[in-house]
C-alpha cells in the first residue's frame, strides 16, 4: 500500500531529515520525492510504500502531525487511492 505525504510550511534546516527519519524509523520506504521552495515556503511531496510499516497509516499521520506542528509545518498523509481513483480509470 502506498501513501502520499504532503509537507507545506516555512523553509528551515532539517525538514527532509526529520520526515525521512520518522519514515525510516517506522519501516516506510520512500519511492519518490519532489521538493521545491516557493516564496520562502517549503513544498514537498513524497510517495512512499507503507506495506512494511511498523505503524498503521493513522498512527503515522499522528506522529508526523505532532512532529510537523512542533516546527510549524503542515504534514498530510493520505492513502494513495484518493488520488488514483480521481485521475486514473
Amino acid at each position: 500500500m502506498k501513501a502520499v505525504i504532503t509537507i507545506v510550511g516555512q523553509d528551515q534546516v532539517g525538514i527532509v531529515a526529520m520526515v525521512s527519519g520518522v519514515l525510516a524509523a517506522n519501516g516506510v520506504n520512500v519511492l519518490n520525492i519532489n521538493q521545491n521552495i516557493l516564496d520562502g515556503f517549503f513544498n514537498m511531496l513524497m510517495i512512499s510504500d507503507i506495506s512494511q510499516s511498523k505503524v498503521s497509516l493513522k498512527e503515522l499521520q499522528q506522529i508526523l502531525n505532532e512532529k510537523g506542528q512542533a516546527i510549524g509545518l503542515q504534514i498530510k498523509v493520505q492513502h494513495e487511492d484518493i488520488f488514483r481513483i480521481m485521475h486514473r480509470i
Partner: peptide
C-alpha cells in the same frame, strides 16, 4: 506513478 499536478489538484 501519480504526477505532482494530480496530487496538488486533488488536495486543492
Amino acid at each position: 506513478m501519480l504526477t505532482i499536478q494530480e496530487i496538488l489538484e486533488t488536495n486543492r
